[in-house]
Design a protein around this nucleic acid. Structure first.
Lengths: 233, 233
DNA sequence: CGTAGTGTTGAATAAGGTCAAGCATTGTGG
DNA sequence: CCACAATGCTTGACCTTATTCAACACTACG
């Protein structure tokens, strides 16, 4: 069962090797997976998955950024996951073959790979190392969702914002300058707040001296101990 | 590599066979898993896992019922999962070896099995069928959490209650009598409401004629189409 | 410049939580 | 079987939090 010669350009055949957990597969299995997969180029704003869609596989993000969000009847968005290069989404629906519960939309121009469920399953059967690594990822997803629920259900708006900011700085710092790499609306949707409320909370934290705005996206966290304390945890 | 004679009573050695996904294992592997596992008898109200605990394995519920919940700084509980016989909890922390994010408490006298992570992992390596089935369960857990988030973040209190009641009746029924199998405080904690608010919503639904209370735990859903409509979805 | 996108601010409002009291149901011991 | 406590549930008054709607400011970029 030889796997050569590779039918794709060398850098394409190694594409998957750069992304865990696919690095656990041998070149041969990776190539099979790659052959079954469909590359997707998404422009900023493009919808990749819609609620109720039947899943066709998992979406691996190679480049760019994708938000997964749930909608309210009135159209409000709540982001449940931000997928960056190396992470994937839609696996929870694909693996149990049920309609997607979340929507996915590129928030910047993105490159993805749609790996069909069947191909993924056979890769898992063929390599226990890959399968184990995949299980870890699935467990990680649950863990993240539960952490999110803890923060979002049990903390007030101010606490959620403080918690969010706190995680952008090293644990031992007291003062730290940050640059938000996404816009505030998106942060608000992650924190389950309206942009207005986020804005108000940030200006209150500013008034109280815990943060100092630096232009639209920059910010100095000037009293991290108080901020952590405010996230109360 | 013979596995006989079984060192445990016959019904004990077959114990795991009754619970998916362990039925995918052969008797031999089941026995090994069982030997590594620790049985736990929990009285009603007993705490099984606390937030920040280091995970020692996954808890399989054999009998009884266990609530998994996250706490607010002020002590408010929000139930993120109700584990009934055949389901397990704590897997998300165990598999990635991180502190538990949720607490687990028996809400009735329960029998559990604590399966150490290492034993689980080796069972997964030894059987691809078990491993695949386990992956499905993990995906299912994420799927359930995301569905919960959609309902809880994006629907109003009334909608959440209507949604909850709706799911207790068959899809095609218009009138259905139900009996709540848990107390209202617990339902409120699942729906992220205070008991007071749940009570108010129920009495409003009663006033509007969609439900009729029947004693403390019984209830007639008398206009399921309106109720579904009210859950808006 | 002018325009679109993004962020901020204010006033009014709504949804749900809190606190406190009272009622009902269940279970227990006399 | 009744008294009584414990628990669970309901109701009312009040309050807090965050949303909504509307107006406006800032910035980026053509």
């Amino acid at each position: 069962m030889s796997c050569r010669p590779p039918s794709l350009a060398p850098d394409a055949s190694d594409l998957l090797a750069r992304f865990a957990p696919f690095d656990m597969l041998d070149a041969c299995a990776r190539e099979r997976l790659l052959a079954a997969a469909r590359p997707i180029h998404a422009a900023r704003g493009e919808l990749l998955v819609q609620q109720e869609d039947c899943p066709r596989g998992i979406h691996l993000v190679l480049d760019g950024r994708v938000k997964c969000f749930v909608l309210s009847p009135s159209g409000g968005e709540k982001i449940v996951r931000l997928a960056e290069p190396g992470s994937f989404f839609g696996e929870e629906a694909a693996l149990i073959n049920r309609p997607h519960v979340a929507n996915a939309q590129a928030i910047s121009a993105s490159e993805l790979l749609l790996v069909p469920t069947a191909a993924l399953r056979s890769a898992m059967v063929s390599s226990t190392a890959f399968s184990a690594s995949m299980s870890n990822r699935l467990a990680q997803a649950s863990y993240d969702l539960m952490s999110t629920m803890q923060v979002q259900f049990q903390l007030s708006g101010t606490q959620r914002v403080a918690h969010y900011l706190t995680r952008l700085a090293p644990d031992d710092a007291e003062r730290w300058e940050i640059r938000l790499d996404i816009d505030k609306q998106t942060i608000a949707a992650q924190l389950n707040l309206t942009p207005e409320t986020l804005s108000r909370i940030l200006s209150q934290l500013t008034r109280e001296g815990m943060i100092q705005p630096r232009g639209r996206r920059g910010m100095v966290l000037s009293e991290l101990s108080r901020l952590r304390d405010c996230a109360a945890h």
